[in-house]
Write a protein that binds this DNA or RNA. Structure first.
Length: 493
RNA sequence: CGGGGUGUAGCGCAGCCCGGUUAGCGCACCUGCUUUGGGAGCAGGGGGCCGCAGGUUCGAAUCCUGCCACCCCGACCA
């Protein structure tokens, strides 16, 4: 156990994660199976993610809208692959009324209130949206449609984990409609890049981007592009996906448009999403045995200031307050600053508490510092602290926030590179996976049989065929058949 | 869905085998005093349908039956 009562990462990574999420006040289990309560501190981080992404979507021409939570059951079955992918994890609404139990046992579902057609709670919204788009699109002049929605969805997962896989989760889902195949592919790839930039520059996770193999594809997609992050246990986490849907949903919902030439053609589609799962990635990528480590660009609090006041220095509190006030003003509104002068809690408690919460920078000020005209400034990521002259503090902190943000990305990149191995034989593949873990680049013959076999034998899956993957002659690590490129394998969440 | 586990105060647990005082401990909470440079100390105090429903018994947190819920590990998934 670490000094905060959290299981250490080396002891039990999975337990560490669960305890940290709860102790840091991000989320907790609710009364409903598999569904979490996102607590204010956790939601504040999610809101920061949302506002950054929302602005990026709007910059790239998208608008927000809202579609129903409930979807007629028949809609789901219109696209064959889609129903295969989602049917077994759908929550179904069958009735619309409750009534008092005539036997006096509380309240029961009124059998007379059975729905003609059951409704499912959306596991994703392609079907309801394409059923709507069909009415919106007649001509090429109605295209493109570039819509995003922020929503919650339900997938009845067998096993759940806070943020990483919950029965209900929050996300955004973009659904776009295009005139041409090329335009839809450009959109799909543009969003992939937008996601990857966000993950690198905000979450600080140096993701690998690429395209999924056929068996890992989104149900109903022609191609699924992905961003794969590496967690501190070497496992991969799919952090966001962007799908080129081809004309599959247009076909399923009979959504055609008149072309510039007067013909009739099916609409081309994309969909893309990132979810509260990114919260899990944020925790698992950077945090340590003392608690969260948050990247400044997403932290609800950037700087916490803890005053050290004892009986002898009580009369100097106003002087202290003035220094802190000046510092806060100097930092400006963009730096979220918290002055915690609650005298009910001692400094040591606060230090531990804000470390647990991952606040990037802590400033301590006490009589000793005031005598020397300095502040003690501690950075969360490296757990170091320095005494900085009060007059230099604003500049120091502003630079440090940038440095911490960069450092997290750099650490993530280094960690990934250190835990990435090229392997050429299956024995080596198994050995590396067993002993070192992480990402493996290996030749694959491109068949689903080989992919399945490797998964069965090692639990590693193909995470993606990386973007701009160099072509290279080789033989499949499992089958020995010829291959033209290495693909990314890893155990995944 | 298979395997394992747990339901006792807001949280974490003990008690259960072997039935019998007023159900106990730690944290948190309230009051007071002393404290405050890495999770403060002392004193006092409040808080329980012992998961639910039956049964056995003079007597059930404890034994029996059934149910429900949640967690963890696997197979599936953002």
């Amino acid at each position: 156990m670490s000094n905060k009562g959290i299981t250490s990462r080396s002891e039990d990574y999975s337990k560490w994660y669960n305890e940290l999420v709860i102790k840091a006040g991000l989320a907790e289990h609710s009364a409903v199976r598999g569904c979490m309560v996102i607590k204010p501190y956790g939601f504040a981080i999610w809101e920061n993610m949302k506002s950054v992404l929302d602005a990026k979507f709007k910059e790239t021409g998208h608008v927000n809208a809202a579609f129903p939570l409930l979807i007629p059951k028949s809609f789901l079955s219109k696209e064959a692959a889609h129903v295969d992918g989602f049917a077994k994890e759908c929550a179904v609404v069958t009735h619309y009324r409750l009534k008092n139990d005539p036997d006096g046992n509380g309240i029961i579902v009124d059998p007379d209130a059975k729905l003609e057609e059951e409704l499912i709670i959306r596991p994703t919204s392609e079907t309801i949206i394409w059923n709507t788009y069909k009415d919106w699109i007649q001509s090429y002049r109605d295209l493109p449609i570039l819509i995003n929605q922020w929503a919650n969805v339900v997938r009845w997962e067998m096993r759940t984990r806070l943020f990483l896989r919950t029965a209900e989760f929050f996300w955004q889902e973009g659904h776009t409609a295009h005139e041409t195949k090329d335009e839809a592919i450009v959109e799909t790839k543009m969003i992939l890049k937008l996601y990857a930039d966000f993950m690198r520059n905000y979450i600080g996770v140096d993701v690998v981007t690429g395209v999924k193999s056929e068996s890992e594809r989104f149900a109903g997609a022609e191609d699924t592009y992905t961003t794969e992050g590496m967690m501190q246990d070497g496992k991969a986490l799919q952090m966001g996906t962007s799908h080129f849907l081809g004309q599959n949903f247009a076909k399923a919902f009979d959504c055609k448009f008149q072309t510039r030439e007067g013909g009739l053609e099916l609409v081309w589609a994309t969909s893309w999403g990132v979810s509260t799962r990114m919260m899990g990635a944020l925790v698992m990528a950077h945090s340590d045995d003392e608690g969260l480590v948050l990247p400044p660009k997403l932290a609800p609090i950037h700087v916490v200031c803890v005053p050290i006041v004892n009986k002898k220095s009580m009369d100097r509190k106003p002087e202290m307050d003035a220094i802190v006030e000046k510092l806060k003003e100097g930092l400006g509104a963009d730096v979220k600053f918290k002055y915690d002068d609650d005298d009910q809690k001692r400094p040591g408690f606060k230090f531990a508490e804000y470390e647990l919460k991952g606040v990037p920078i802590r400033v301590a000020i006490g009589p000793r510092d005031m005598d020397k005209g300095v502040l003690e400034i501690a950075r969360r990521d490296e757990k170091t602290k320095e005494l900085i002259p009060i007059d230099d503090a604003v500049e120091y902190i502003q630079k440090l926030l940038v440095e911490i943000q960069d450092n997290l990305l750099q650490r993530s990149r280094n960690y990934r590179l250190e835990h990435t191995t090229n392997v050429d034989t299956f024995d080596e593949f198994k050995k590396v996976l067993e002993e070192k873990g992480g990402f493996i680049y290996a030749h694959w013959d491109g068949t689903e049989e080989t992919e399945d076999k490797i998964k069965e034998l090692t639990k590693a899956t193909i995470r993606c065929i990386p973007t701009d993957n160099p072509l290279e002659e080789g033989v499949c690590v499992y089958s020995g058949n010829p291959s033209t490129q290495r693909v990314l394998f890893a155990k995944a969440y």
